[in-house]
Simulated assay, not measured.
Amino acid sequence: MNNIASILLLVFLAITFLQSSQDKLFHWKDNLDWLKEHFKNTPLKNQVPLALVNVLILELISGILCTVGSIELALNSGRIYGLYGAIFSSITLIMLLFGQRLAKDYDGARTIVLYFIPSVMAVYWLN
């Protein structure tokens, strides 16, 4: 029971990133069309498909590591997979924040901060 807060954070991050990556995989064209419009006035306008692939890969890695990390932490108090999951989650969110700021979507950037706080808490607690 000493690790319950960390497990809850890892489950939160796992759900967040696995659901988001699942949405990108199964609704690729809708996401790509929306993002092309979203970034049309930014230096990323010609890089949207590549950026989406990068984000998808990072989200999958983050979600899988957080899932494995929460199981590892619950079973034997191991922290390594959870720590890496939290670190990858934080990096992914920083990339998303950068994109939102570049697109001047300040409300979207503010929303990402709400996910970044628990992500950094998980890094701190699992380190």
Rank of each mutant, 00 (worst) to 15 (best):
M1T: 03
N3Q: 12
N3A: 12
N3V: 07
L10R: 04
F12M: 13
L13Q: 08
F17C: 10
L18P: 13
D23W: 05
N31C: 13
L32M: 09
D33N: 13
F39G: 06
K40S: 15
K40N: 14
N41M: 07
L44C: 06
K45H: 11
N46M: 10
N46E: 15
Q47F: 12
Q47R: 11
A51W: 02
L52A: 08
N54W: 01
V55Q: 00
E59N: 09
E59D: 03
L60D: 00
L60H: 00
L60Q: 02
I61D: 01
S62N: 00
V68R: 04
S70W: 01
E72N: 14
A74N: 04
A74H: 01
L75H: 03
S77A: 13
G78L: 12
I80D: 09
G82Y: 05
L83P: 00
A86F: 09
S89A: 13
S89I: 05
I91E: 02
T92E: 08
T92A: 12
I94P: 10
M95W: 03
F98W: 01
G99P: 05
R101F: 10
L102N: 04
K104Q: 15
Y106K: 06
D107K: 07
A109G: 13
A109V: 06
A109H: 02
L114R: 06
F116I: 04
P118M: 04
P118T: 06
M121H: 00
M121C: 15
A122H: 02
L126S: 04
